[in-house]
Design a protein around this nucleic acid. Structure first.
Lengths: 165, 165
DNA sequence: GGAAATCTACTCGGATACCGCGTGTCCGAGTTATGGTGG
DNA sequence: CCACCATAACTCGGACACGCGGTATCCGAGTAGATTTCC
């Protein structure tokens, strides 16, 4: 099982659609986002309620409502999205096996119980390295990467598709 | 859910017990390992069958049998243990949402379908950074870290406990 | 013609079902040292 | 005294139950624009 869930993937793809070239960004409803990428409408809605709680998007209700980025794409990192969807769960949860070691039966806790578990320390370092990569990448960078690969401005492509439906 | 399972933690703690100071390393049965750290015997056995398959430990059957490190502690990395227990599952499995994008209906696949997904690329980089930390840390290093914190040689402590039982 | 009521389409949030997987337990088969037995 | 056999203790491997969490679906409540109705 992967630690980064499918919900994060859906969220990132959907948010990418909301970037747009102008300062405002694009507005789109959950239904539109789902149809654009062939995804379940309900699941997109479920995802965006979490993005809304995390203040990554703002919503306008009623007909012709929809979602919009709450701040500039350059200010939204991949890590922000992961935390919004999956929560800030650590890769590894130390069970403190040290404390149950048979050496300390009745005896005072002694030596290794103090400080961070050596194994735990390694996992924490690995997790930090991973998080930093996700923090260094923003929606804006992904957007520009895709645009560079596409060879044409994404904004016009998205707008064209948004127009005829 | 954490990606590094509890089995890995049990495995690392148990393997640490097998290190020992001499070249041979220590030999211990699953029962002994379990009793030493207050863990289910069956679960330790389950874990060690996987470590055996991965050629990290060698086993001698029958009474007075047990497990032993298959190679020097410095040659066994944390990553080796993680792969042996959890398998080499990626943190993120890309679902290629790009290919389902509504823009390409009947049309040829075009632009972004080629190459690696930009989102996937970020996840792969994060995963690599994390893996490198786990690859750079070996059993020997953890062993020495614990010994330094303990202030006394672990080998004699383990041997003493192993003697009176 | 303008204001109010109704309708429609959307968001929001919770409830629920399904399924895979990690955790933990149990059991049977195979293997080896130890102790006992019989020649 | 020695060869043989039974027993105990262990490994090996699969099977199974349980619970948790991710995925996915459905439904009711609330909201805002569009439409209709009524004065």
């Amino acid at each position: 099982m992967s630690h980064v869930t499918a919900g994060v993937e859906y969220a990132l793809h959907s948010l990418l659609y909301l970037v747009g070239d102008d300062k405002q960004g694009r507005q789109a409803s959950a239904k539109e986002l789902a149809e654009f990428q062939g995804i379940s409408v309900d699941f997109v809605a479920k995802i965006f309620t979490r993005l809304h709680k995390a203040n990554l998007v703002v919503s306008s209700e009623g007909i012709k409502g929809g979602f919009r980025l709450a701040r500039r794409a350059a200010q939204i990192s991949v890590w922000d999205v992961v935390v919004a969807i999956d929560g800030e769960k650590p890769i590894f949860d130390c069970r403190e096996i040290r404390s149950r070691c048979a050496i300390f039966k009745g005896r005072p806790p002694g030596w290794t119980t103090m400080g961070v578990c050596s194994i735990h320390a390694i996992m924490l370092e690995a997790e930090t390295k991973m998080r930093n990569v996700l923090k260094d990448n923003t929606l804006a960078e992904i957007y520009h990467n895709v645009e560079r690969k596409a060879g044409k401005p994404l904004d016009s492509v998205f707008s064209a598709w948004q127009a005829d439906r």
